[in-house]
Simulated assay, not measured.
Amino acid sequence: MTGSELAIEVNDLGVRFRRNRRGRRSFKDLFADSSRRSKPGEFWALRDVSFAVKPGESIGVVGRNGQGKSTLLKLVAGVLIQDEGRVAVNGGVAPLIEITGGFVGDLTVRENVKLTSGLHGMPRAEVARRFDGIIQFAELEESVDTPYKHLSNGMKVRLAFSVVSQLEEPILLVDEVLAVGDKAFREKCYKRIDELLADGRTLFFVSHSERDLRRFCTRGLYLDKGRLAMDAPIDEVLDRYNQDYNG
């Protein structure tokens, strides 16, 4: 399968961070230093990571905290820039990465739905057509004119998931946010993800929930110390991960 026929293609990917308050290196640093060697105070969050994802695959990313899972997701989403290697994404992405991403605290729920949907490329007429469904799915009918900053974390997650799951992008990126919220709403989210997968969407899913990974994913990527330790069927990856850290 050629690169143009893949949903996601990652080759020799590497990204560095600083171990200080400045966090990620500046754009000046990126242009000033192309060396593969780490400077004092830097570390490789990901290094030499390569894999390919076919359209319609369901990929679960496994690993302990701090092993590069969320960094990888943000690189695929295009919100981080790698230091080396290549990330190619063929098709738009629907990112459910950070619950506050794209939402404005002082705007109401109504205004945020229109703004965020538009930022993701949904035409204004389509936003209007889907608006009531988005609000109903999020169970925010009584809060539609409430400023976003006054919502609880659970309400913010419901709104974010509801908006992103309405996008018609072929690739869905999900990072742990389903761990927030009550059981009844999580089941609604699970059902919606099942519908999206049945529709042929590609899923790239970061989670610590073995139950969710086994439910949605057929293949797993196991990250350890920023490197790809295993790429195999999800059951085999989870068995290896459990053996490494629970055995």
Rank of each mutant, 00 (worst) to 15 (best):
V237E: 01
Q243Y: 11
G226F: 00
E9S: 13
D175W: 06
D175F: 09
E57L: 14
E169F: 03
F185Q: 03
L80M: 12
T100F: 07
D224H: 05
E168M: 07
V62L: 06
F103M: 04
C189Q: 06
G78Y: 03
G60A: 08
Y245I: 13
G105E: 08
G56C: 05
R64L: 06
G101C: 12
R211P: 02
G226H: 01
E84I: 00
R24N: 06
V76W: 09
G102T: 06
E84N: 04
A232E: 14
A77G: 14
V79P: 01
L167C: 09
E84Y: 01
I97V: 15
T218V: 02
L140H: 08
G102I: 07
P147G: 12
Y190K: 07
L80E: 11
G78Q: 08
K54Y: 11
T108S: 15
G92I: 10
D33T: 08
G68T: 11
S26D: 13
Q82N: 13
P123E: 11
E98D: 14
G3V: 09
I134C: 01
R22D: 13
D132Q: 14
D48A: 10
G3S: 14
V177I: 15
R130N: 13
S34E: 12
A94N: 06
A52V: 14
A229H: 10
V144E: 05
F131G: 09
G23L: 10
S50N: 06
V180H: 08
V174L: 15
R215M: 02
E141Q: 15
K188G: 12
F27S: 11
P95L: 00
A232T: 04
L221K: 04
R158C: 05
A232K: 08
F216S: 02
K225C: 10
D235N: 13
R25W: 05
G247W: 06
